[in-house]
Amino acid sequence: MKVLVPVKRVVDYNVKVRVKADGSGVETANVKMSMNPFDEIAVEEAVRLKEKGVAEEIVAVSCGPNAAQEQLRTALAMGADRGILVEHDGVLEPLAVAKLLKAIVGKEGPALVILGKQAIDDDMSATGQMLAALLGWGQGTFASRIEKEGDALKVTREVDGGLETVSVKLPAIVTADLRLNEPRYASLPNIMKARKKPIETVKPADLGVDVTPRLRVLKVEEPAKRQAGRKVGSVEELVAVLRNEAKVI
């Protein structure tokens, strides 16, 4: 079967994010960008499926600026076979991305789409679910383990208080949780091979999708600075402070 893996270009998880001076968003100029870590897990899972002989072809797709080709190259170096860039400068909301992906699914006809459970920049955790709804496919979200069983997929999900196992009929959507796997490091020969793998570029208009934002960002601000701690002399004083100042008891 063919597996589609959408990957998102985000600010690297090691970077200390700064809010733009005008409060319109976060600073991304001259900031290290990487593949969303949950998407890396999704790519790894697809590659493992291919190594097991379950998947035949892995197509990585990214929606974003031209520079998102770098993230596609990373996916190709990890083992994806080819890439598709849906090129668009500017804001792409989850619904727009889900619509773009639906169009790509229509063209490519994959039996499985594996996405990261959320992107670390906006933490929306929405694209996978929206895509499932748009396609009318089953979904296994927050997957910590997946296994193919006939024409269905057994998906173990991490839920509060334990693990839930669901069976999803293919074609299906899976979103990857942290413990699904530990992504490999790209090897040098694979980085070399990735350079020769094809990346096709399309525009949202080519796919007939209107990506105009439907949300308006009012303000982005940094979390309030934490106050320094304070030492108190006795239990009595502590209780008094908690009651009168912090008002938590």
């Binding site: 770098e70 190259r73 490091y185 790209a186 090897s187 980085i191």
Partner: peptide
């Protein structure tokens, strides 16, 4: 080049 960056990234991780 992007390839140089990929190289640094991979070595850095190892």
């Amino acid at each position: 080049t992007p390839q140089h960056e990929a190289l640094q990234e991979a070595i850095g991780r190892i």
